[in-house]
């Protein structure tokens, strides 16, 4: 199947109590994500990228515009429909520790969400399935008996991914999924995200600030600033020929190791 899985049209999100100053966090944003593809959203803190993600999942209250998931309008879904939607669309957050219950072992964390969504009848059944899901994210069945504090950062993020996948997610929003991880582990997790896209056909909305990560993961990219999209396009094109001054600034602000060394060598030569 191809075509868009998610279509967002003129989305606006505002914050602020009635009578007080209203802050418009997302100011009229439209985009679509094709099935099995990865759309990257880049911007600095305060650009509205995380609010955008929350709004897409129906987690924001003051939302205006249209969000269509698989042809159905999210903002108008009834209770049964929203439950199904929440199973199919899941989120993975930046801090892998903060998003796991410290009192639940990894296996129990997966079993819990499966029971909540009515996908497993008994505890025993849920526990047996948990091991399979841990295997899909590259964790051995023994990890089912570990508490979050007994796992490394990378392993915790794998558990978070398994928890999202085990209820049947097809669409995943990952908000800075590797920025809290060590460099040597980041690459492992990014490769895992990529292989989940390829083998399971997962559709991604990847939120981040690192253009090099986007280059690695995303097919298309949106650059956000102050609640608006200032540039968009296939990721290679945007990086090779950035049109907006802000995108250019982002690119020059984060050079690679080699670029930085070359720049300094050139400065010394002058």
């Amino acid at each position: 199947m191809s075509g868009p899985l998610l279509q967002v049209d003129s989305l606006r999100v505002t914050y602020g109590a009635p009578g007080r100053r209203v802050v418009e966090a997302v100011r009229g944003v439209s985009f679509e994500v094709l099935r099995g593809r990865c759309l990257g959203v880049v911007g600095e803190s305060g650009s509205g990228k995380s609010t955008l993600a929350r709004a897409v999942l129906g987690l924001e209250e003051r939302v205006d515009g249209r969000i269509e998931f698989d042809g159905r309008e999210v903002l108008r879904m009834g209770r049964a429909e929203i439950r199904a939607f929440r199973r199919r669309a899941q989120m993975v957050f930046q801090d892998p520790m903060g998003s796991l219950n410290p009192r639940l072992k990894a296996g129990a964390a997966l079993a819990e969400v499966r029971r909540v969504h009515g996908l497993a009848k008994t505890r025993r059944e849920a526990a047996a399935q948990a091991a399979d899901w841990l295997a899909t994210v590259g964790l051995d069945a023994a990890y089912a008996n570990r508490f979050p504090h007994e796992l490394s950062g990378g392993q915790r993020q794998r558990v978070n991914l398994a928890r999202a996948l085990c209820v049947g997610a097809e669409f995943l929003i990952a908000d800075e999924p590797v920025s809290a991880l060590d460099v040597s582990v980041q690459a492992q997790i990014l490769n895992l995200l990529k292989s989940l896209q390829e083998t399971r056909g997962i559709t991604w909305l990847l939120i981040g600030h690192d253009l090099a990560v986007m280059r690695q993961m995303a097919d298309e990219v949106l650059v956000m600033k102050e609640g608006r999209i200032v540039e968009r396009g296939p990721v290679d094109e945007v990086l090779a020929r950035p049109a907006h001054s802000y995108t250019k600034e982002l690119l020059s602000a984060a050079p690679s190791v080699r670029q930085a060394l070359d720049r300094r060598a050139a400065e010394r030569a002058v």
Binding site: Q186, L190, Q216
Partner: peptide, 12 residues
């Protein structure tokens, strides 16, 4: 490290 001119797959 992910690079702007990097390969398809990272080596962790």
């Amino acid at each position: 490290l992910p690079r702007l001119d990097g390969a398809e797959r990272l080596e962790g």
